[in-house]
Structure formats: C-alpha cells, structure tokens
C-alpha cells in the first residue's frame, strides 16, 4: 500500500499527459491506440521488470540489450517452420538469457567484480556471440506458431503475466523480502542469516531469463532474430525502473512503479509520434521527462 501511495505522483503525471493528449489528438484515447501503447511497451516492460530485481539488490545490468539480441537469434534458429514445436525456441531463448544472467551473477558474487563492469563485459560478449551464431545476418523464415507470440495482444499478456508473478514474489514471498534486505543493507542482511550471494545470483539469473523472454517476444514481433537488435534497450529498461521509483542504490521500489514507468515512456513515445513531433525534439523531450519524473518523485518523498 505504501509503495502505491508513493507512486501517486507518477499516476497523476500519467493521467495529465494522457488527458492532454486525448484533447489534442482524440485518437489517443481509442481502444486500438491504447492497445498499441501497451503492446509497444511490453518488451521494454518485460526487461524493466527483470532489471528491477537487480536494481533492488543495489546492482545494475547493462547487458540486457545484447542478451535480447542473442536469445532472439538463438530462438529464431529453432523456430523455422516445421522444425520444432514452439516451446523449443521459446525455452532456448529464455535459457540462453538465464545462462547469461547466471554468469553475470556468479562473477558478481564469487568473483567480487563490480556489477557495472561484469555486465558491461557481458554486453560486449553476448553481442559478439549473437553475431557469431547468426553469421552477422538476420535469421528469418520463422514459423507461424512462433510469430504468433509477437502478434496481437500476446506480448501484452506475456508482460502482464511476468508483472503479476514478479509482484507476488517481491511483495509477498520471503525471497522478495530478502532481495529488499540485501539491497537495503548488505551487512545487516548477512548478519541476520540471509544468503546474500544466493539472493544476488537469483536476481541476475531471473533478470537474464526475462531479457531472454523479451528477446523471444521481439524476434516473434519483428519476425526475425536480429544480431544487432536491442541496442540501448538496457537504458530504456533502467529508465523505466527509475522513473517508477526504484532506487539505483537498492532496497527501495518495486514492480508496480516499474510498470507505471514503462507506461509513461510508452505514452510519451506514442504521443510524440501521433503529434508528428520532429525526431530531433523527440529525443530532447524524452530526456527531459526521464530526469523530470525522477526529480519530482524525489522532491515529493522528501516533503
């Protein structure tokens, strides 16, 4: 309840922008357009929910975009029509993502290397593996059942499912409370008998797995596995989480805010396109809104 109250400012901002857009561009408030918005945010949303786990522990994951590309390519390789049942490419993509996340987690916990460096390394390496696996070319000719995952409302359902499971896990289960404890004060958490390394390893692995899932949905949506896809996605995902009120230093925040953050970014993107704002100004507006949203949120918390 408390987290929802603290997200109140964000809800108001979202409603204000939505109301303004509906007046200037009535088409904004139509069902097909709103479906558009949620579909367009679903990939960023899935990644953002994943990276919420890592940010809550006080870490960071910069490898998301590259992991998206790698798992998209791997899934696409298994998704040619008539090759395998659709569960195989999906599982392959998610597992590859989880493996990348698991390696990140192991090096962070066992190797004691800073998460920024570890995941920066993974960002470069995973992109390289994606290029090697695909031979530098997009993997196309994907089966009907695989492409279905990216069509219509399916990405939205995947995003909602991921959000619900994560919300329950983070706010109601012991593992969730441990994540907050580790991010809030690692030493105190360790003193109280929490397996800090295990919790962190879990956070990076689930973050990687969700990036893998995001890669699968993206490949299905654009009907190819692209080795150069997902560039910059990690920053969009982190931006959504931070706009949603999760602290970069860990311990504070949650999935509810992340969903609102992703939604705000999606609405702005959609609105600027509907208004046909020039690309130059779009970049400026997005930058200002990211910083502005966080600034407003922090001011309100202090008062």
């Amino acid at each position: 309840m408390k987290t929802w109250l603290s997200r109140f400012g964000l809800v108001v901002a979202l409603l204000c922008i939505g109301a303004a857009l509906s007046i200037v561009k009535p088409v904004f408030l139509t069902f097909p357009n709103l479906l558009n918005v949620v579909r367009q945010i679903s990939i960023n949303g899935i990644l953002a929910v994943g990276v919420t786990y890592v940010l809550l522990t006080g870490g960071v994951d910069l490898s998301l975009g590259s992991v998206v590309a790698l798992s998209g390519v791997v899934a696409a390789i298994f998704a040619h029509p008539g090759d395998w049942p659709v569960i195989v490419p999906v599982a392959a993509g998610v597992l590859v993502g989880a493996a990348c996340g698991g390696i990140n987690g192991l090096v962070v916990t066992k190797g004691r290397v800073a998460p920024f460096i570890v995941t920066l390394g993974m960002m470069t390496a995973a992109r390289g593996v994606a290029l090697v696996v695909s031979g530098g070319k997009p993997v196309s000719n994907l089966g009907e059942s695989f492409r279905w995952i990216g069509s219509g409302g399916v990405p939205v359902i995947v995003f909602l499912a991921v959000s619900c499971v994560s919300w329950v896990l983070l706010s109601n289960l012991r593992l969730g409370r441990h994540l907050y404890a580790v991010g809030g004060n690692e030493n105190a958490a360790r003193a109280s008998g929490i397996n800090v390394e295990g919790v962190k390893l879990f956070a990076y692995t689930i973050c990687g797995a969700l990036a893998g899932l995001g890669g699968v949905v993206l490949a299905a949506r654009i009907t190819t596995g692209q080795p150069n896809a997902g560039v910059g996605y990690e920053l969009d995902a982190i931006a959504a989480v931070v706009i949603g009120g999760t602290s970069l230093s860990g311990g504070v925040g949650g999935v509810g805010g992340t969903i609102l953050g992703a939604l705000l970014m999606g609405v702005i993107n959609n609105g600027l396109d509907l208004l046909n704002v020039s690309s130059y100004y779009q970049a400026i507006v997005k930058g200002i809104i990211i910083v502005g949203a966080v600034w407003l949120d922090q001011r309100k918390e202090k008062s």
């Binding site: 088409v27 904004f28 558009n36 990939i43 949506r221 654009i222 959609n270 396109d273 046909n276």
Partner: peptide, 14 residues
C-alpha cells in the same frame, strides 16, 4: 525494424 514497426502502428492511428 522494431522501431519502424512501432512508428507505423502509431501513424496508422493518427
């Protein structure tokens, strides 16, 4: 490709 798809969806709306 992904960005173009979103942009086209938005244009179809507007």
């Amino acid at each position: 490709r992904a960005k173009a798809m979103s942009l086209m969806e938005n244009w179809i709306q507007s």
